[in-house]
């Protein structure tokens, strides 16, 4: 190939590529493009649910598969005085309220949770960033906790409100981490309120005293430092209205992929 042809080819490819690329970047800023691409999430969710249904279990691994160091991500230590006070007393007075669309609101202490039948599972944690870690989690399956509160028929989603502050909402109000699952995922047998990791009391960096494990979802769904669980018909009235802290930043609500 002569130099001029090579240069022409390079320039043509680079030019076309750069134009397409900056086009895609500009399109990414447009709400209608975000909405259109985001719509596909519903298709993905429906199709994956056909395959996985309500009860397909995430793979459980052997003890020997447990990662030597389980990476902690997101908030590593909530920066509030209240949380520090709870941590100093070993979360003795920590309570998790279960409310919203239920017949019988609950307020559960750590002792209450630990008195309920527990489940231990060695599972793989997949972060949206791309890495994975295997760890052993112990906790109370969420399904019987919800059943004890007797959900009303109109309840469709389970919200998890957390103790870690995440800056401010556009309104100026303090924002806290929150997440949501639909009832199918919330009542899955491996969805637990975990209070132990690898046989130890759940460390602060992993969400002490209680975090969510939803094993068929990505890590950002698994809220840490849980203080309040609320059953709702939809999540539009909370914070940014997208059902979770990262969802409000543009991440998909469906985190099965």
């Amino acid at each position: 190939m002569t130099d001029s042809r090579r240069n022409f080819l390079k320039a043509a490819l680079a030019g076309a590529g750069a134009a397409a690329l900056s086009g895609c970047t500009r399109l990414s800023q447009k709400p209608w493009v975000q909405d259109a691409l985001g719509e596909v999430e519903n298709l993905t969710r429906r199709v994956q649910r056909v395959f996985a249904g309500g009860h397909a279990l995430a793979t459980e691994y052997k003890k020997s598969d447990i990662a030597p160091v389980f990476r902690a991500n997101g908030t590593l230590n909530p920066s509030t005085d209240e949380y520090a006070a709870h941590a100093a007393t070993g979360f003795r007075n920590w309570r998790i309220a279960v409310g919203g669309l239920v017949e019988k609101p609950l307020s559960l202490s750590l002792d209450d949770l630990q008195a309920m039948p527990a489940r231990t599972q060695i599972t793989r944690h997949d972060c949206v960033e791309g890495w994975s870690c295997i760890g052993e989690w112990t906790g109370v399956p969420l399904a019987p906790v919800l059943a004890a509160a007797r959900p009303k028929p109109e309840a469709r989603y389970v919200m998890f409100f957390c103790a870690d502050p995440m800056g401010n909402l556009p309104s100026g109000e303090a924002a806290y981490y929150y997440e949501s699952l639909d009832l199918l995922e919330a009542t899955h047998p491996q969805t637990i309120l975990a209070y132990r990791l690898n046989g130890q009391v759940l460390p602060i960096e992993h969400g002490a005293p209680v975090r969510l494990r939803a094993e068929r979802q990505l890590g950002y769904k698994m809220a840490k430092y849980i203080q309040r669980i609320e059953l709702v018909e939809n999540f539009h009235r909370f914070a940014g209205g997208k059902g979770g802290y990262w969802e409000d930043q543009g991440y998909s609500w469906y985190a099965g992929i």
Binding site: S22, T25, Q34, L37, G38, V128, Y251, S252
Partner: peptide, 15 residues
């Protein structure tokens, strides 16, 4: 795609 670091949008395009 997009040019700036923006994982959420990259995932929307990709999927």
């Amino acid at each position: 795609i997009p040019g700036p670091q923006w994982l959420a949008m990259g995932r929307l395009w990709h999927f």
